[in-house]
Design a protein around this nucleic acid. Structure first.
Lengths: 351, 351
DNA sequence: CGACCTTGCTAAACCGAGTTAGCATCGGTA
DNA sequence: TACCGATGCTAACTCGGTTTAGCAAGGTCG
C-alpha cells in the first residue's frame, strides 16, 4: 500500500552514521551527547529530505510514553450538551502533541472496566474520567494505577485524584443576583428543584449546589423564595408541566429554571397562558444550551463551561503525569459565566 | 506507581516454558504449532492467574496492527448534532476490540494534515474521515496511504475510498409522501431552500438531494409546490424570518422545512401569527434533532441516521483493512427513517 | 613522557511482543 | 540397525526506536 515509512535506520544510513547518533540528534539530545554541529545539521537535513517521521509506537515501547491519553466517559461524545468538553480536551492535548482515545461506558461498569483495560493495554500516559453531568462516581480501581483526573465528577469515597468541576454554587449566586438586580423580591419560583435543599432530583450534584448559591444570595438580601417544584427529570416536558401547574395556582413574577431545557418547557407553558417573557415573567436558567439563544426572547442563563472543563482536565492530567502536582489543591472549580440575554426585566410593579 | 505489568516473559517463566511457546499459546496459535494440550492449559491458567494482558503497543510494533483507528472530522464531537456518529463508530470498533483516536480539524487543512500525521505516527490501522454535515471534500493525500473511509462526505474528485452518506434523496421523497398521504396538494411551501434545485445554500449536498426527492414525488403526483425560500443558513432565526415573510404574503397549508432548526423558527413565526400546528399548517422537517420531540406539537421529521452512519463507516473501514472490499460498491447510502409525530394533519378543507 | 581529560561517536542492550527455522525425542517401519 | 515422520518445543531474529557504557583520537598538564 504505502511506500514503506522511512525509519531511523534509513536516515542513519543515508547520513553515514549509527542509529544511535541519529536517534540522539533527532530527539534533541545531540548537544547533550556532544554530537558535532556539522553532523547534527546533516542529519536533520536528511531526515527532512527523506520525510522521516518517528514511529511513536516504537518509541513508546522503550520510553513508556505513548503521547496518548484516554478520555473515558459515561456518554459525553454522544451527549449534544457536553461535546465541547471533548473539544477542550482534544485541543489541550494537541497543544502537547498528544492524541486522545475516546470511549464511552454507558454507565455499564463491565464495559467501563474493559475500556480502561483497553487503554492501559495501549499504554496511555493518563486518563480523563468524565461524566456527562456532574455526579458522584465510584472511582474504578484501575484508574489508580495511572495518572488520572476526574472530570465533571466527584469521588464517592476519598480519592487522591484531581477533580475538575463547574463552580455550580457561584452559578447559583449569579442567577439569584440577576433577579435581585432587576428588582425582583417577590413571586420568585424555582422550576426543577427546591425550594428546600433536599428537593432535588436523585444524584444531582448540580441541583444541590445551584440551590445553595441561590438560597445564600436571597437569604443575604432578605428575600424569600415563593416556591419551588422538584421534577423527576430536567427535560422540556417536565418544565412545561411544572410551570403549567404553577400558573394554575399563582402568578409568578420570576422563574429560576434549573436548566435550559426546563426553561424551554416553561416558555411553552407561559405562552399557552398568554404570559409574556420578560414583561410578565422573568426567566433565568442554567447551562447555556444552544437552545437558549434560539428561544424567543433569548434566554438569560449561566453557562456550563464545557470547553474550559475539558481543557482544564487535560492540563491537570499533565500536571499529574509530570509530577508537578505535589501540594496543589486537587479540586478545580471552573467559573460558570453569566450569559445576559433578553429574558429578564424589572418586575411589573416596579417599572 | 502501578506494580509493573505482567509480561509474556513473566508468564513463560512461571510456567517453565519459553517466551515463544507462551506467545504461541496465548495468541491462539498453540494448536497450529503443536503445543501439547497440557502445556496450553497450564499457560492459560497461569496467564489468567497472573492477570496477564498483552501489551498492544509492543505487539503492534511487530505486527503492524495496533487495534486502533482514527476518527478525523471537521467538528463532529463538538457538534451536538452528530455526536451519535461517534457513538456508532466507537461501538462498531469496540465490537472488534479496537479503540478510536479522535481529532478535529476545524476545517483548517494544516491542522487536518498534522492530525492525520499524528495518527499515522501512531500506526493506526485505518481512518474514518468524517464531516459534520454532508459535503464535498478534497481528500487529503495522506489518507491514500492507509485504509480509509469517507463519512458524511463525498470526494470532490474521483477517489478510490468507500463513502458512507445518508440517503437524502429518499428522505426527500419520504417527507413529500407524508404530506401527500395526509391529503395535501396545495399551499405547500419549502423553508430553507427551493423551490428550484438551484435555490440552495452554498455547498449543501443535503439541500440538493432533499429537493430532488421532494420534487420527484410531487411531480409524480401532479402536485406543484406553492413556493420556497432559500435561507443563507439553517438556524432557527432564518426559519422564523422566512416563515414570517411567507405569512405576510400568503396562507400556506404545509411547510417542508429543510431541517429541524428551521422548523423551530417556523413554529415561532406561526405561533406569533396565531396559526396552529397542525390544524392550520402542517410541518415536516429533516434531521430529528432532539429539539423535534421537545417542540409542541412534536415535529414529524426524517431522521439523520447518525448512529448507523458511524457504525457503517467503521464496518466499511474494516472491510477495507481486511481487503474484503474488492468489487464492492463503494458508496453506502444509509436510510433516513421517518419519525411520525404530531405536526402533520389533513389540510383544513379536506377534513 | 605518561596520566588524564575532552570530544565525538558507536556498540549493544532494551522495551514486549510475534515469527520461523530447526532441534530433540520417540515410536514405528523396513 | 538405520531411517522416517510425527510430536513438542525453543533459539534467535524482528519490529523501530531509546539509552548507556565506553572506545578512539587528540589535546593538556605536571
Amino acid at each position: 500500500m504505502s511506500p514503506r515509512r522511512v525509519t531511523l535506520a534509513d536516515v542513519a544510513k543515508a547520513a553515514g552514521v549509527s542509529r544511535s547518533t541519529a536517534s540522539l540528534v533527532l530527539s534533541g539530545r545531540g548537544a547533550e551527547l556532544r554530537i558535532s554541529g556539522e553532523v547534527q545539521e546533516r542529519l536533520k537535513a536528511i531526515a527532512e529530505e527523506l520525510g522521516y517521521r518517528p514511529n511513536i509506537v516504537s518509541a513508546g515501547l522503550r520510553t513508556g510514553r505513548t503521547l496518548t491519553i484516554g478520555f473515558v466517559s459515561d456518554t459525553v461524545a454522544t451527549s449534544r450538551l457536553a461535546g465541547d468538553m471533548i473539544k477542550g480536551a482534544i485541543e489541550a492535548a494537541r497543544d502537547r502533541g498528544v492524541l486522545l482515545f475516546i470511549g464511552e461506558s454507558e454507565g455499564d461498569s463491565k464495559l467501563e472496566h474493559a475500556l480502561l483495560q483497553g487503554m492501559h493495554d495501549r499504554q496511555v500516559d493518563g486518563i480523563v474520567f468524565a461524566s456527562m453531568y456532574t455526579r458522584r462516581v465510584s472511582v474504578p480501581e484501575s484508574l489508580l494505577g495511572t495518572s488520572a483526573v476526574l472530570l465533571n465528577a466527584v469521588p464517592k469515597t476519598p480519592s487522591p485524584l484531581p477533580v475538575v468541576v463547574p463552580d455550580e454554587v457561584e452559578a447559583g449566586r449569579a442567577a439569584a443576583r440577576v433577579l435581585l438586580e432587576a428588582g425582583h423580591r417577590d413571586g420568585i419560583h424555582l422550576i426543577g428543584a427546591g425550594p428546600g435543599l433536599r428537593n432535588v432530583p436523585r444524584g444531582s450534584v448540580a441541583a444541590v449546589e445551584r440551590l445553595v448559591g441561590i438560597r445564600e444570595v436571597f437569604a443575604g438580601a432578605g428575600v424569600e423564595l415563593a416556591g419551588g417544584t422538584r421534577t423527576a427529570d430536567w427535560l422540556p416536558e417536565y418544565g412545561f408541566d411544572a410551570t403549567r401547574d404553577l400558573l394554575a395556582r399563582t402568578k409568578p413574577r420570576a422563574l429560576i429554571c434549573l436548566n435550559d431545557r426546563l426553561a424551554f418547557g416553561a416558555y411553552q407553558a407561559l405562552a399557552e397562558a398568554s404570559l409574556s417573557v420578560p414583561d410578565d415573567v422573568s426567566v433565568v436558567s442554567f447551562d447555556d444550551h444552544p437552545l437558549a439563544s434560539w428561544m424567543r426572547p433569548k434566554l438569560t442563563t449561566v453557562a456550563l463551561p464545557f470547553y474550559d472543563l475539558g481543557r482544564t482536565a487535560v492540563d491537570a492530567l499533565f500536571a499529574e503525569i509530570n509530577g508537578e502536582t505535589a501540594g496543589e489543591k486537587p479540586v478545580h472549580r471552573i467559573p460558570m459565566p453569566l450569559r445576559t440575554r433578553a429574558s429578564v426585566a424589572r418586575p411589573p410593579e416596579v417599572r
